[in-house]
Write a protein that binds this DNA or RNA. Sequence first.
DNA 1: AGCCGTTATGGCACAACGTGCCACTAAGGC
DNA 2: GCCTTAGTGGCACGTTGTGCCATAACGGCT
Lengths: 219, 219
Amino acid sequence: MSAAPSPRTERPTLTERRKAETQWEIARRAAELFSERGAAGVTAEGIAEAAGVSLRTFYRYFRTKEEAVTPLLTGGVRQWLGDLAAAPAELSVEEALEQAVRAALTPAGTHAEAQAEALLSTRGLLRAVPGDPALRSVWLRVHAETEQSLVPVLTALVREGTDPLDVRLTAAAANAAMRLAMETWAATDAAPDDAERGPAALAVRCLRGLTAGLRTPRA
Amino acid sequence: MSAAPSPRTERPTLTERRKAETQWEIARRAAELFSERGAAGVTAEGIAEAAGVSLRTFYRYFRTKEEAVTPLLTGGVRQWLGDLAAAPAELSVEEALEQAVRAALTPAGTHAEAQAEALLSTRGLLRAVPGDPALRSVWLRVHAETEQSLVPVLTALVREGTDPLDVRLTAAAANAAMRLAMETWAATDAAPDDAERGPAALAVRCLRGLTAGLRTPRA
DNA sequence: AGCCGTTATGGCACAACGTGCCACTAAGGC
DNA sequence: GCCTTAGTGGCACGTTGTGCCATAACGGCT
């Protein structure tokens, strides 16, 4: 329980960089193996071996075998939440969500290339999700945590006095829209920066579809 | 892969009734133990022993230790889907969802007592969910399956030509509303048939809050 | 009633999961 | 340079979940 080695925004120490590197290496190898053989066909020892660490060390980085791929699944979440929290006050909640989603899912800026590649890696993994119960479980768990993180951010966005239950509903709905957008994109071949069929466009479309869906008239 | 022993609506045979009975017995005992000591503090052998079956038989009824409680979590789902599919055509999708939810979550009819008791058992289990990662995982998995089952039912309800993505969005949103309603009710002491704070009332309130939530104006 | 194919059950062995513990080694502060 | 701290690997162990086979109970038949 000692204080973090670099408490402020200092440059991370050598040890920390190495740890982050091995964490990514494990996650990358795990995603490769899971995509190839399915989660049930891969042993934790196999992942550890492919990543060049011992089995014991593997379990120091990830609690379970399946959790090893979570870094690839939580890709844009941190940025999404950050952008949402920083949304200008003149935007409605809907608009703020759309704008943050666009920023988080559109590869741009100096890291555009890296972001696009990360999205493609994530898509490769997502394509294995529907048919793999274990992967499906992690995918759901990641989104459950995102939903939890969304609640305080939205609470700050909404006008004071709003029923907390409505905030949780909004968080759940927006989160579900994101999930379906990613799942839908994973089933296509659209490029990560496709303006019409890319993840950002799909996410916006899903957010808008949310409010429209329930009002659909019957035949 | 032989045909089911009672293909039609025949009275179930003795063996089938015994199987259903042991399945419930295992589920009940598992829920008790999980609520007391948490999922991590209970062994599959412990559940099997409490239910009076061998460990090997336990795993013939449930694939994993945690899955043993799913029967308690899927309580009203079947009825909900059935009522929804049978909704009269003059109702809008919103109204059909509300009506089906009411029917599924309001203890009534000849089995009112049993339904109320089942809801209370479910609530006991749900109260252990937030603090128990393993239970949380099952809870999410159950809802993911419900969402999948909801899609074809809603497809039949919605006017022809509706984008399948919109249907999936509606299913996800409605399902999330149900989930939050149950979680909210679990945190209260309201009776299962409470007209204002019971599960049915909360579910209707959550369904309505869905459409309102995203439109909330900023401060 | 009694026979017989089918099916549920229990016991056993086994690979894999995940953790506690200890020794070892490398990083970062003095 | 030394020394504290922290990451790593190896080992043992309880638990999970499955394949396999023998046994017992059920359901259909004559």
